[in-house]
Design a protein around this nucleic acid. Sequence first.
DNA 1: ATGCCGTTTGAGAAACGA
Length: 257
Amino acid sequence: MKIATYNVNGVNGRLPVLLRWLEESRPDYVCLQELKAPEEKFPLQAINDAGYEAIWHGQKSWNGVAILSRHGLPVEVTRVLPGDPEDLHSRYIEAEVSGITLGCLYLPNGNPAPGPKFDYKLGWFERFALHAKQHIDSGKPVVLAGDYNVIPTGRDVYKPERWVDDALFRPETRAAYEKVISQGWTDALRALYPDETIYTFWDYFRDAFGRNAGLRIDHFLLSPSIKDRLKSAGVDKNVRGWEKSSDHAPVWIELKN
DNA sequence: ATGCCGTTTGAGAAACGA
């Protein structure tokens, strides 16, 4: 079983790239982030024609998350991150697929830091940690995939010293991520490739992709009861080089059945 | 060193992303 996550940075503007990648990669399940489309503008027909069913939570202009499935409609569990009825951002959706709970998240960026946006990020992170802990306590197989907007360590960025004051790499952010990991989650790509340089995002300018000046910020966290099924993982880096690409590349894992 | 580019909204410029 192949599960992928892809921050598309606009699902409609990205549609040709998304469809081409779906056809080439053929993941069983896909988590999408940054739809940047309201609920009614999700390109369901094109997704269906590509062989996928979908659930999604849209929002005008910003955010937006979706889960695609080649094996019937995902059974939606929730389309909000619990814990704050005031939070209206579309940043979390969760479904049951093939006996797995699959959470798709778009964690807030948090820049500039410090400031209200950074406070929102850390607050969202606390709620996410509570939700993740409930999954750990359930003992069930859970995959939490998406754009975490977290550079976990200095190994995950081309020049760490330039990012120390950035919301993606500040000590508070790394500590929040580490706190979630310490509940018992496995960072799938790092587990398989402990010493490799792996990036999932390259800025649009300064020829960041050409210089491989990237960040690893899209992650798969695996609960204890599923981590031993991890077979392989990777980044479809070539997609980042396509015309009209997102600034993120798709990331995927393969699980034993 | 820096939103330098890209997307969306809405019809030009601004907000936002990382």
